[in-house]
Protein backbone atom coordinates (compact mmCIF):
# COMPACT_ATOMS: atom_id res chain seq x y z
CA UNK A 1 0.00 0.00 0.00
CA UNK A 2 1.39 3.42 -0.94
CA UNK A 3 1.10 6.83 0.62
CA UNK A 4 -2.44 8.07 1.30
CA UNK A 5 -1.71 11.33 -0.53
CA UNK A 6 1.40 10.76 -2.66
CA UNK A 7 0.98 14.07 -4.48
CA UNK A 8 2.13 16.02 -1.43
CA UNK A 9 5.70 14.97 -2.23
CA UNK A 10 7.75 15.98 -5.24
CA UNK A 11 11.24 14.68 -5.98
CA UNK A 12 14.31 16.83 -6.53
CA UNK A 13 14.45 15.45 -10.09
CA UNK A 14 10.93 16.64 -10.84
CA UNK A 15 11.53 20.05 -9.29
CA UNK A 16 14.71 20.41 -11.36
CA UNK A 17 12.76 19.57 -14.51
CA UNK A 18 10.14 22.19 -13.73
CA UNK A 19 12.38 25.08 -12.75
CA UNK A 20 12.13 26.61 -16.21
CA UNK A 21 8.35 26.75 -16.13
CA UNK A 22 7.08 28.81 -13.26
CA UNK A 23 3.58 29.47 -14.51
CA UNK A 24 1.42 29.46 -11.39
CA UNK A 25 4.12 27.40 -9.68
CA UNK A 26 5.57 28.91 -6.55
CA UNK A 27 8.66 27.53 -4.87
CA UNK A 28 9.15 28.73 -1.32
CA UNK A 29 12.13 28.09 0.97
CA UNK A 30 11.47 27.85 4.72
CA UNK A 31 14.57 27.35 6.86
CA UNK A 32 15.55 27.25 10.49
CA UNK A 33 18.70 29.08 9.37
CA UNK A 34 17.01 32.14 7.97
CA UNK A 35 20.24 33.31 6.29
CA UNK A 36 20.40 30.21 4.08
CA UNK A 37 18.06 31.68 1.45
CA UNK A 38 20.22 34.77 1.01
CA UNK A 39 23.32 32.63 0.52
CA UNK A 40 21.70 30.63 -2.27
CA UNK A 41 18.34 29.10 -3.17
CA UNK A 42 16.55 27.30 -5.97
CA UNK A 43 16.05 29.37 -9.09
CA UNK A 44 12.80 31.28 -8.87
CA UNK A 45 12.27 30.49 -5.18
CA UNK A 46 10.94 33.00 -2.69
CA UNK A 47 11.30 32.68 1.06
CA UNK A 48 9.03 32.49 4.06
CA UNK A 49 10.61 33.47 7.38
CA UNK A 50 9.36 31.09 10.06
CA UNK A 51 9.57 33.73 12.78
CA UNK A 52 8.92 37.05 11.03
CA UNK A 53 6.32 35.80 8.53
CA UNK A 54 4.62 32.78 10.06
CA UNK A 55 4.56 33.71 13.75
CA UNK A 56 3.13 36.71 15.54
CA UNK A 57 5.94 37.69 17.94
CA UNK A 58 3.50 39.37 20.29
CA UNK A 59 1.21 36.40 20.83
CA UNK A 60 3.58 33.54 19.92
CA UNK A 61 0.75 32.32 17.72
CA UNK A 62 0.73 31.84 13.97
CA UNK A 63 -0.27 35.02 12.17
CA UNK A 64 -3.96 35.71 11.68
CA UNK A 65 -5.97 34.97 8.55
CA UNK A 66 -5.64 38.49 7.15
CA UNK A 67 -1.86 38.45 7.55
CA UNK A 68 -1.71 35.02 5.94
CA UNK A 69 -3.64 36.36 2.95
CA UNK A 70 -1.19 39.25 2.67
CA UNK A 71 1.81 36.89 2.88
CA UNK A 72 0.47 34.74 0.07
CA UNK A 73 -0.63 37.68 -2.07
CA UNK A 74 2.76 39.37 -1.82
CA UNK A 75 4.35 36.19 -3.13
CA UNK A 76 1.99 36.03 -6.09
CA UNK A 77 0.10 33.08 -4.69
CA UNK A 78 -3.65 32.72 -5.08
CA UNK A 79 -5.96 30.01 -3.79
CA UNK A 80 -5.30 27.71 -6.76
CA UNK A 81 -1.53 28.16 -6.98
CA UNK A 82 0.75 25.17 -6.75
CA UNK A 83 3.19 25.77 -3.91
CA UNK A 84 6.32 23.69 -3.45
CA UNK A 85 8.08 24.07 -0.12
CA UNK A 86 11.61 23.03 0.75
CA UNK A 87 14.17 23.79 3.41
CA UNK A 88 17.07 22.61 5.51
CA UNK A 89 17.06 20.30 8.52
CA UNK A 90 15.26 17.58 6.59
CA UNK A 91 12.40 19.94 5.78
CA UNK A 92 11.50 20.55 9.44
CA UNK A 93 10.57 24.15 8.84
CA UNK A 94 9.24 23.52 5.34
CA UNK A 95 6.91 20.96 6.92
CA UNK A 96 5.89 23.65 9.40
CA UNK A 97 5.15 25.87 6.41
CA UNK A 98 3.15 23.02 4.85
CA UNK A 99 1.09 22.66 8.02
CA UNK A 100 0.68 26.46 8.19
CA UNK A 101 -0.68 26.61 4.62
CA UNK A 102 -3.04 23.73 5.34
CA UNK A 103 -4.15 25.49 8.54
CA UNK A 104 -5.51 28.27 6.34
CA UNK A 105 -6.93 25.85 3.81
CA UNK A 106 -4.40 25.91 0.95
CA UNK A 107 -4.77 22.53 -0.73
CA UNK A 108 -2.23 22.59 -3.56
CA UNK A 109 0.96 22.46 -1.51
CA UNK A 110 3.81 19.96 -1.75
CA UNK A 111 7.14 19.24 -0.10
CA UNK A 112 10.31 18.67 -2.08
CA UNK A 113 11.28 15.24 -0.75
CA UNK A 114 14.70 15.40 0.91
CA UNK A 115 14.68 19.17 1.05
CA UNK A 116 17.64 21.46 0.65
CA UNK A 117 20.09 18.87 1.94
CA UNK A 118 19.32 16.40 -0.85
CA UNK A 119 19.37 19.17 -3.45
CA UNK A 120 22.79 20.38 -2.24
CA UNK A 121 24.35 16.95 -1.88
CA UNK A 122 23.24 16.20 -5.44
CA UNK A 123 25.25 19.32 -6.35
CA UNK A 124 22.31 20.99 -8.05
CA UNK A 125 22.50 24.73 -8.77
CA UNK A 126 21.58 27.51 -6.35
CA UNK A 127 21.27 31.19 -7.10
CA UNK A 128 21.31 34.41 -5.11
CA UNK A 129 18.97 36.11 -7.63
CA UNK A 130 15.73 37.09 -5.94
CA UNK A 131 12.70 36.92 -8.23
CA UNK A 132 10.09 39.64 -8.23
CA UNK A 133 6.63 38.27 -7.57
CA UNK A 134 3.54 39.65 -9.27
CA UNK A 135 1.15 40.41 -6.41
CA UNK A 136 -2.03 38.34 -6.28
CA UNK A 137 -5.23 38.39 -4.31
CA UNK A 138 -5.74 35.60 -1.79
CA UNK A 139 -8.81 34.74 0.25
CA UNK A 140 -8.00 32.19 2.93
CA UNK A 141 -10.31 29.76 4.62
CA UNK A 142 -10.87 30.06 8.37
CA UNK A 143 -8.25 28.28 10.48
CA UNK A 144 -8.58 24.50 10.40
CA UNK A 145 -8.36 23.74 14.10
CA UNK A 146 -8.83 20.03 13.42
CA UNK A 147 -5.11 19.81 12.61
CA UNK A 148 -3.86 21.81 15.56
CA UNK A 149 -3.70 20.87 19.24
CA UNK A 150 -3.78 23.59 21.88
CA UNK A 151 -2.46 23.59 25.44
CA UNK A 152 -5.70 22.90 27.28
CA UNK A 153 -6.60 20.02 24.97
CA UNK A 154 -3.16 18.49 25.46
CA UNK A 155 -3.39 18.73 29.25
CA UNK A 156 -6.88 17.24 29.18
CA UNK A 157 -5.81 14.40 26.87
CA UNK A 158 -2.75 13.26 28.84
CA UNK A 159 -2.85 9.44 28.97
CA UNK A 160 -6.01 9.44 26.82
CA UNK A 161 -5.00 10.44 23.29
CA UNK A 162 -1.83 8.86 21.86
CA UNK A 163 0.91 11.46 21.92
CA UNK A 164 4.06 11.15 19.88
CA UNK A 165 7.12 12.94 21.18
CA UNK A 166 9.21 13.24 18.04
CA UNK A 167 12.33 14.67 19.67
CA UNK A 168 15.54 12.70 20.12
CA UNK A 169 15.71 10.12 22.93
CA UNK A 170 18.10 12.43 24.78
CA UNK A 171 15.51 15.23 24.82
CA UNK A 172 12.69 12.80 25.64
CA UNK A 173 14.51 11.35 28.66
CA UNK A 174 15.51 14.80 29.90
CA UNK A 175 19.26 14.67 29.29
CA UNK A 176 19.06 17.45 26.71
CA UNK A 177 16.77 20.49 26.61
CA UNK A 178 17.04 21.06 22.86
CA UNK A 179 18.50 19.43 19.76
CA UNK A 180 22.26 19.02 20.18
CA UNK A 181 23.08 21.62 17.53
CA UNK A 182 21.62 24.30 19.80
CA UNK A 183 22.87 25.68 23.14
CA UNK A 184 21.16 23.88 26.01
CA UNK A 185 20.17 26.76 28.30
CA UNK A 186 16.36 26.71 28.28
CA UNK A 187 13.68 28.03 30.62
CA UNK A 188 11.49 24.95 30.75
CA UNK A 189 11.95 21.70 32.65
CA UNK A 190 13.41 18.75 30.80
CA UNK A 191 11.33 15.65 30.17
CA UNK A 192 8.19 14.67 28.30
CA UNK A 193 4.39 14.60 28.52
CA UNK A 194 3.25 11.64 30.64
CA UNK A 195 2.29 8.66 28.52
CA UNK A 196 3.88 10.01 25.35
CA UNK A 197 5.70 7.54 23.16
CA UNK A 198 9.08 8.59 21.79
CA UNK A 199 9.30 8.09 18.04
CA UNK A 200 12.02 10.47 16.88
CA UNK A 201 11.04 12.22 13.65
CA UNK A 202 14.24 10.96 12.04
CA UNK A 203 13.01 7.36 12.05
CA UNK A 204 10.60 8.45 9.32
CA UNK A 205 13.44 9.64 7.11
CA UNK A 206 15.97 7.88 4.94
CA UNK A 207 19.65 8.81 5.13
CA UNK A 208 19.22 11.25 2.21
CA UNK A 209 16.37 13.05 3.98
CA UNK A 210 13.53 11.57 1.92
CA UNK A 211 10.53 9.99 3.61
CA UNK A 212 10.55 6.26 4.21
CA UNK A 213 8.10 4.06 2.36
CA UNK A 214 4.44 3.89 3.36
CA UNK A 215 4.86 0.35 4.68
CA UNK A 216 7.84 1.35 6.82
CA UNK A 217 5.98 4.40 8.17
CA UNK A 218 2.86 2.37 8.91
CA UNK A 219 4.91 -0.21 10.82
CA UNK A 220 6.65 2.57 12.76
CA UNK A 221 3.57 4.53 13.86
CA UNK A 222 0.60 2.19 13.59
CA UNK A 223 2.39 -1.09 14.22
CA UNK A 224 4.97 -0.33 16.91
CA UNK A 225 3.80 3.15 17.87
CA UNK A 226 0.28 2.19 18.88
CA UNK A 227 -1.48 4.86 16.84
CA UNK A 228 -4.78 3.77 15.35
CA UNK A 229 -5.29 4.52 11.67
CA UNK A 230 -8.74 5.98 12.35
CA UNK A 231 -7.99 7.35 15.80
CA UNK A 232 -6.66 10.59 17.23
CA UNK A 233 -3.00 11.40 17.67
CA UNK A 234 -1.03 14.44 18.76
CA UNK A 235 2.56 15.05 17.66
CA UNK A 236 4.82 17.44 19.53
CA UNK A 237 8.49 18.34 19.73
CA UNK A 238 10.21 21.43 21.17
CA UNK A 239 8.78 24.33 19.14
CA UNK A 240 6.49 22.63 16.62
CA UNK A 241 8.64 22.18 13.52
CA UNK A 242 9.90 18.61 13.87
CA UNK A 243 6.37 17.65 14.91
CA UNK A 244 5.12 19.26 11.69
CA UNK A 245 7.37 16.83 9.82
CA UNK A 246 5.77 13.94 11.72
CA UNK A 247 2.32 15.46 11.25
CA UNK A 248 2.91 15.37 7.48
CA UNK A 249 3.77 11.68 7.84
CA UNK A 250 0.71 10.88 9.95
CA UNK A 251 -1.90 13.07 8.27
CA UNK A 252 -0.74 13.18 4.65
CA UNK A 253 1.34 10.07 4.01
CA UNK A 254 -0.54 7.63 6.26
CA UNK A 255 -3.94 9.32 5.99
CA UNK A 256 -4.55 9.53 9.75
CA UNK A 257 -7.09 12.32 9.45
CA UNK A 258 -7.39 12.96 13.18
CA UNK A 259 -3.67 13.62 13.66
CA UNK A 260 -2.86 17.04 15.11
CA UNK A 261 0.27 19.09 15.51
CA UNK A 262 0.84 20.60 18.95
CA UNK A 263 2.92 23.58 17.87
CA UNK A 264 3.19 24.96 21.40
CA UNK A 265 5.12 21.75 22.06
CA UNK A 266 7.62 21.26 24.86
CA UNK A 267 8.59 24.92 25.23
CA UNK A 268 4.97 25.53 26.24
CA UNK A 269 4.08 22.32 28.07
CA UNK A 270 7.42 22.07 29.87
CA UNK A 271 7.02 25.60 31.22
CA UNK A 272 3.50 25.21 32.62
CA UNK A 273 2.86 25.45 36.34
CA UNK A 274 1.05 22.52 37.93
CA UNK A 275 1.10 20.00 35.10
CA UNK A 276 2.82 16.61 35.40
CA UNK A 277 5.86 15.63 33.37
CA UNK A 278 7.83 12.43 33.13
CA UNK A 279 11.52 11.74 32.82
CA UNK A 280 13.16 8.48 32.04
CA UNK A 281 16.67 7.59 33.15
CA UNK A 282 19.44 8.21 30.66
CA UNK A 283 20.53 4.94 29.10
Amino acid sequence: MGYAHPDVLISTDEVADRLGNHENLHIIEVDEDTTAYDEGHLSGALSLHWQKDVQNPGSRDVVDQQTFEKLMGERGIDESSEVILYGGNNNWFAAYGFWFLRYYGHENVRLMDGGRKKWELEQRPLTTDKPAATPASYTAKPPNRAIRAFRDEVIEQVNKTPMVDVRSPEEFNGALAAPAHLPQEQAQRNGHIPGAVNIPWSRAANEDGTFRSADELRELYVGKGGIEADGPAIAYCRIGERSSFTWVVLHELLGIDRAKNYDGSWTEYGSLVGVPIERTPTA
Binding site: D33, G88, N89, N90, K117, S168, P169, E170, A175, L176, P179, A180, H181, L182, P183, Q184, P200, S202, R203, A205, T282
Partner: peptide, 19 residues
Protein backbone atom coordinates in the same frame (compact mmCIF):
# COMPACT_ATOMS: atom_id res chain seq x y z
CA UNK B 1 18.87 7.77 16.67
CA UNK B 2 19.63 11.03 14.93
CA UNK B 3 20.07 13.79 17.51
CA UNK B 4 21.08 16.78 15.41
CA UNK B 5 22.50 17.80 12.06
CA UNK B 6 24.48 20.84 10.97
CA UNK B 7 26.00 22.06 7.74
CA UNK B 8 29.71 22.92 7.78
CA UNK B 9 30.70 26.56 7.33
CA UNK B 10 33.21 27.99 4.87
CA UNK B 11 36.04 26.71 7.09
CA UNK B 12 34.57 23.21 7.14
CA UNK B 13 33.69 23.58 10.82
CA UNK B 14 30.74 22.24 12.81
CA UNK B 15 29.57 22.43 16.44
CA UNK B 16 27.26 20.41 18.68
CA UNK B 17 26.26 20.71 22.36
CA UNK B 18 25.74 17.08 23.48
CA UNK B 19 25.96 15.51 26.93
Amino acid sequence: DFTAEVRTDESGRFLFYPV
